[in-house]
Structures are given as structure tokens and as C-alpha cells.
């Protein structure tokens, strides 16, 4: 008797772990940037968050008698993204609770990888944000020198001054306030692009994030439609409402959200048309929240909001089956 199985009998090299580990590699530049700009404490937060995520995944897997899916690396991604979404000064229990919430409640209780409705990292961020609003909205200015030099000294204290994020300044004082803060417009763009501005540790450096996003796009792990339509919608709304589109693109968590979180497979639509709609929706909600909402930033909420709609979008925006008249 030989082995029996259905066709096809050969397979491309694709596997879930390969996708997830490439994703982790793509997050590395941003991680390096976080340490560079915010010092060793950023690294510490990331390690704690990832460790919590991995341990939670293991424990909940055992408890719920699921197949343990640690090796596919999705828990590591969630842990990293949770840490990326926090200011450097948060107490250490915040990433712990966040990662636990993301993995245990948002992911595992909904059925584990592939069944969750919401992006675990984003849901976790929003949860801890509402749990500890003051801690989650205390921002520190980036270090003036490289944070790597401090790694050896195990100096985990925060010694910079607290300030406001560019988006908050824009909200309170408008463009004029931004210009006094950054000096010139070009200087502001440069600082925002490199990541030299207060914000969540993983979201400030557009350069590092774009490097990782480039890798993901090249390896075809993420596709163009979602990030492109997301960013295009933001630019369009900025132009229509007379805001500075480059500033809005580079500030806040937009790049991180558009390339790394809105593109999450499980919680985004599957057809190209659906993806574009999803991206446009994210852009719309983000800009409405940024310009009219009570909080300065709206990326997490917009993506979570569209996550909820994704199954519906999938239902109504199917690919046209060849040969079937509509």
C-alpha cells in the first residue's frame, strides 16, 4: 500500500511560518530605529511584550487543547507590534497586559490563528489605551544621540523630557505650532521621515518601516491594494481639507498601520476590490478621527473598525468567476 492523498502532489515552498518569519524580519529595521531613538528601554519593552505573547500563546494553547502554533511566529509578531504601539515611558505591566489581552482574548478565544476577527495587536493597543490613558499618552522626546550607545550600560531609565506628538501639536496649535517646534518645514519632514519625533516607539521612523515594507512587497507577502488605497485616501482628504498631506503621511502610526497592520491577512478582505475598499475605509476613518476626533491619532481605531467590516466586504465584493454571467 502506498500513501494516498488528494492532488496536487507537489507544493510551492510557501508555508505559514515562512510568511510570519519574513514578516518579523521586516519589522527589524523599525525595531532598530526604536532603540536608536528611544534608548534601551524600548528594547526592554519589546522583549517583555514578545515574551508575554509567546508564553500566553503556549499556555492558552495548552489550556484550550489547541495545536500549539508557536513555531509559526505569529505570536512574536503580535508581541512586537503591541510594543511598537506604546510610548517609551509606559510601565512594564502595560505591554504585559496588552500582549496577554491580544493573544489570549482577541486571538485564542476567537479560535486561534485564522479565526480572529480583530487584529490582536491593535485590539490590545486600544484596550490598554483606554485602560491607562494617562500612561499611554505621555510622550518622550527622542534621544539626541544614538540609543545603541546606552545599551551596554543597562540604563533603562527615561531621562528625556515629556512633550507632545506632532499630531497633538497640529491639533492644538496648527501648522504654526509645528513650525516653531521643528524649525522649518523641510526640517520637519526630515525629522518625521527619519523618526526623530515623539511617538510610539515603533511607529515614528517612516524610513525604517518603509524598508521593511519594501521587503514584504518584494516577497509578495503583502499586496499593494490596501496600503496604497489607504495612503492615497489620506493624501486626498488632506488635499481636499487643506491640510499638509506629507505631514499626515509621515506622522503618527500611519505607515506602520498601513503596511503592517491593515494588511494582516486574517482580518482584511481577500479580493482586490475588497482590499481597495478596505484601504479607502481605513483612510477615511483615520482622517475623520485625526481632524475631527477627540484624540490626535486614529489609525488603530480605523483599522479595527474596518476589521469588523472585512467579512462583510468579502461577502459583497467577490471576484468575478470566469464564464459566469452577472
Amino acid at each position: 500500500m502506498y500513501r494516498l492523498s488528494v492532488s496536487p502532489h507537489i507544493h510551492s515552498k510557501a508555508s505559514v511560518s515562512r510568511i510570519m518569519w519574513t514578516f518579523i524580519v521586516a519589522l527589524m529595521p523599525a525595531m532598530a530605529a526604536s532603540i536608536w531613538f528611544f534608548g534601551p528601554r524600548a528594547l526592554y519593552l519589546e522583549i517583555i511584550s514578545v515574551a508575554t505573547a509567546v508564553i500566553t500563546e503556549l499556555l492558552t494553547g495548552l489550556l484550550l487543547k489547541k495545536r500549539i502554533t508557536l513555531s509559526d511566529g505569529s505570536a512574536v509578531i503580535t508581541g512586537l507590534l503591541v510594543a511598537f504601539n506604546m510610548p517609551v515611558s509606559v510601565p512594564y505591566y502595560v505591554p504585559i497586559v496588552g500582549s496577554f489581552f491580544g493573544i489570549a482574548i482577541v486571538k485564542q478565544l476567537f479560535g486561534g490563528l485564522g479565526y480572529n476577527i480583530f487584529n490582536p495587536a491593535l485590539a490590545a493597543r486600544v484596550f490598554v489605551m483606554f485602560a491607562w490613558l494617562p500612561e499611554m499618552t505621555t510622550w518622550n522626546a527622542p534621544l539626541t544621540t544614538s540609543g545603541f550607545s546606552k545599551l551596554a550600560g543597562f540604563n533603562f531609565s527615561i531621562d528625556t523630557i515629556t512633550t507632545a506628538t506632532p499630531l497633538a501639536i497640529a491639533k492644538m496649535k496648527g501648522m504654526a505650532g509645528l513650525l516653531t517646534e521643528f524649525g522649518s518645514k523641510m526640517g520637519m519632514y526630515k525629522d518625521l521621515f527619519l523618526g526623530k519625533c515623539p511617538g510610539c516607539i515603533g511607529e515614528t521612523s517612516a524610513l525604517a518601516l518603509l524598508l521593511g515594507a519594501g521587503l514584504l512587497l518584494l516577497t509578495k507577502i503583502i499586496r499593494w491594494p490596501i496600503p496604497l488605497s489607504y495612503l492615497a485616501t489620506v493624501v486626498l482628504i488632506c488635499l481636499l481639507s487643506g491640510n499638509d498631506p506629507i505631514f499626515h503621511l509621515l506622522s503618527g502610526g500611519l505607515i506602520l498601520g498601513a503596511f503592517f497592520m491593515a494588511t494582516d491577512y486574517v482580518t482584511s478582505p481577500m479580493t482586490p476590490k475588497g482590499m481597495i475598499l478596505f484601504g479607502v475605509g481605513c483612510g477615511l476613518v483615520t482622517m475623520v478621527l485625526r481632524l475631527k476626533g477627540g484624540l490626535p491619532e486614529g489609525v488603530s481605531f480605523s483599522i479595527l473598525f474596518m476589521n469588523a467590516l472585512a467579512p462583510l466586504i468579502d461577502r459583497y465584493f467577490k471576484n468575478p468567476v470566469l464564464g459566469v454571467k452577472t
Binding site: 490563528l113 499586496r223 482584511s268 471576484n319
Partner: peptide
């Protein structure tokens, strides 16, 4: 494994 909705098959 469970479908991760990667849309590669689509």
C-alpha cells in the same frame, strides 16, 4: 492548518 486568509489561492 487553518486558513489564514492570505488570499494566495484567490
Amino acid at each position: 492548518k487553518p486558513c489564514i486568509h492570505c488570499s494566495k489561492c484567490l
